[in-house]
Amino acid sequence: LELAVRGAVEAAAPEITSIEVETAAGDDNAAGPLVPVDSLFARLHADAAAVGADGASWEVVPELPGLESGAVARVEVGRMPVVACRVGTDLFAFEDRCARCERPFDGATLARRLGGGAGDAVLRCATCRAHYDVRRAGVCLDEDGGHLAPLPLLADGATVCVSVPAAVAP
């Protein structure tokens, strides 16, 4: 339970630098400060984009909640071009730039790796035909050292927010 709560807090509030857990000796029902679950999702439901300590902003992306499994979408988030794809229920976002040819992912496709399992997901650049493993943070499967630039995202089922660096945020 402690790990699940830590994970939820870290995902909802990445600016938190440490979490301390206190337990009452011998009393499992001890009263203490409570953090309402809704407050963990405040960033997702805010009217304005939230800005983190590093200047990155969380932007709502209305096109992404409806993205179907196996689909690839290119969207503008703030002023940054982003490529997103869904594998089952998992959603991934990267800067829209191929690490090999440095072109946008126009016409990119998502497929299973040859001989791979059902959860495998390989993003293929239509320009240079490079292959990237989306589950492994966009590592290039065709050459060592190449990888996409993944972007953090938060989803609550109805809303998806993507964090974009300050240099390209409005």
Rank of each mutant, 00 (worst) to 15 (best):
R124E: 13
G55H: 09
R124Q: 13
R43T: 09
R100W: 10
A11D: 09
S69W: 07
L153E: 00
E10K: 08
L110W: 00
F105D: 04
D38G: 14
L151D: 00
G52Q: 12
A130D: 06
G117S: 15
G52V: 03
T89F: 07
R43F: 10
V139T: 05
D156M: 08
V162Y: 09
A8M: 09
R124P: 05
R129I: 12
P62Q: 05
V122Q: 04
V139F: 09
L3E: 11
C128T: 01
E76F: 11
P14M: 01
E59W: 11
R124I: 13
R100I: 12
R6G: 05
C98I: 03
D28R: 11
V82M: 04
V51H: 12
A8G: 08
G7R: 15
C128Q: 05
P81H: 14
A167V: 08
L34D: 15
D54W: 07
F105E: 08
T127K: 13
E95K: 06
E2V: 12
G145T: 05
G32N: 03
Y132K: 08
R112I: 07
G157K: 03
P150V: 05
G145I: 01
P36M: 01
C140V: 07
A42C: 08
A166Q: 10
W58P: 02
L153P: 03
